[in-house]
Design a protein around this nucleic acid. Sequence first.
DNA 1: AGTGATTGGATAGTAGTAGTATCCAGTATT
DNA 2: AATACTGGATACTACTACTATCCAATCACT
Lengths: 204, 204
Amino acid sequence: MRISALVERTGVPLATVKYYLREGLLPPGISTGATQADYTEDHVHRLQVIKALTSAAGLPLQKVKIVLSLIDAPGSDLFSALGQAVASLPPYRDEPATEHPRARALLERIGQLYDPAYPATAQLEHALEAAEEAGIGMSDERLEVYARQIRGIAEYDLQRMGSSELSPVEYAVLGTALYEPVLLAMRRLAHQDIAAKRLGGSAG
Amino acid sequence: MRISALVERTGVPLATVKYYLREGLLPPGISTGATQADYTEDHVHRLQVIKALTSAAGLPLQKVKIVLSLIDAPGSDLFSALGQAVASLPPYRDEPATEHPRARALLERIGQLYDPAYPATAQLEHALEAAEEAGIGMSDERLEVYARQIRGIAEYDLQRMGSSELSPVEYAVLGTALYEPVLLAMRRLAHQDIAAKRLGGSAG
DNA sequence: AGTGATTGGATAGTAGTAGTATCCAGTATT
DNA sequence: AATACTGGATACTACTACTATCCAATCACT
């Protein structure tokens, strides 16, 4: 299909499609002449993924590029792709692997592997620290409740991983990024639901 | 204390403190002369909260301003503050309340209040839609697993709300924003932990 | 064959965000 | 008196994510 069809199918403006081509987020179409190129269904899909990652997951284009390159890489194994995917997601911390005492204490308490080299370990440490600094540090009890519930979700995620049509890497990377907003929205709605049932009222 | 002490205590650069003063994120100190003003512990705390909201929760300053104004508002009731806090958090969707079919179907299935006017309802709809468009739509089963686990967290949150030293509004607003990164980091780490125990390997 | 629309490619411009830097004259401090 | 620091104003910068314009080649259609 021509570029105009791509625009029509995805709703992404022409100038933006050209911009993504320039930035290497979208592979060029197959040239069928000096001023013509042929685009495929893959290009449509790619644009939809970019749209989802930027608008739903809120990733900057630079990070979208990394995520897409992970999906494209042919021989990448699932486990390291997962790690790299996490590193490419906000919040961005790329300190060298130092000690993460808060994260370590929590992970050891719940019997989970502590590895300061995981990007998510630094993210957890930073998040715990930020909450503390803002004056709403999290109690051990709360952290344990969170960990237990979250573990249930993660176990389901991994168990379902095999049964997707997508490649494991694509499933892992997109699932990490795109299911997170769902999780957060659910928590917010659960808060409102519980509060409404308990207190009455309505919120806009 | 003088402004230089504020800078020293919080690590926020002077030019940035001045910028926050200009933008109204930080209230001015009490003027003790034409070129001197007195800042308090409250200013230190405020700067820490701003830091936490921008760097951990990733909020733009405009939204931080809204969150802070909710905390400051004296008569604001908890329930609407919660709603407004949610609306001020990413991802930002401020369409008028239309129908949200995916969110509605889910909420009705799990017996939760569906209100298209909640900001989080639009966020949920959008997140579900984005996942679908990217080709990794979420099954009913998965959504129910997520909802069950998340509800456990939300119930704990609400139950604990009374027992904080902070005002309920401050607790609700900061807790919504600052505990989310913890939740996400925990899920990512649980993925890696489960994958490591199942597959072996290490990720950087 | 002629005409207008479309295309790929290059380049420039814009809007928003979050600072950073500089300058100033009036105090504090020593 | 000399130096340092302050509040306040203004200007500048870097980055992100587009958006707009221009161009010459070339399609599609008559």
